[in-house]
Amino acid sequence: MINKIVGSAREALADVFDGAVILCGGFGCVGGMPATLFRALAEVPARNLTLVGNAPVLGVRAQKAAARTMQVPDWFADGELLLKNGQVSKLIVSVPAMAIYRLEEPFPIVKALQAGQDIEVELVPQGTLAARMKAARAGIPAFYARPGTGTFLQKGREVRRFDGKDYLLEEAIRADFGIIWAHKGDRHGNLVYRGTSRSFNATVAGAARVTVAEVDEIVELGAIDPEAVATPGIWVDRIVRRAV
């Protein structure tokens, strides 16, 4: 019997090792953030992690600033926890901090660097980041894309001209683990999301060697309409129920 359900997030991430590359689902705001898995990652001993995601380290203060009159739920967490622990050696992100929010304290990445941590930061256009994950999932090692041409990102990069326009060579991101949020899942790993919280979660699914999903609800096989499955189970290796 196929059963991808794992008892706890801690168990699902127990084999994360030093130097692992981790793709992070979510967009950066509260909705869709794999918070239970971030909390569990903060408890594994692995260090020198590379976090790859749109905005995985904005931290809880940024969420409160963005939330206005909404309440940031207590369960919220992101890669800020890992930065605080000194577990991160590299970020591949599109948004390391958000200029529209002025916080009482510096953003987590700024604090970590000010504290003397040695962290590399690679900035990637958001859509190119998604495409580099999707390419990894599809077994495509590299592709050409237009965003970033004529900017600082072009420096030192292979440029090819197609139909009179320049494109940059972009490589797939090879990753060890992917952590994602979903609304419902079954023991085969079929997932459905909710609203705009699908975002990078459905992109990360299957893009790493091991994909771990946290869900609000684990349902019986057959309870998800096959027409409504957004991520087919083949892309998912482990499922845990979200701790709220």
């Binding site: 967009f27 909705g31 869709g32 998604a130």
Partner: peptide, 28 residues
């Protein structure tokens, strides 16, 4: 406002008939 109904500027948005959701890679 609903955490699962946000635009890319971190603002809550409303549902409207005809709406669809998809992955980040498809959005780009």
């Amino acid at each position: 406002a609903d955490w699962d109904m946000f635009n890319a500027s971190f603002q809550p948005v409303t549902y409207a008939p005809g709406m669809s959701f998809f992955s980040h890679d498809e959005a780009f």
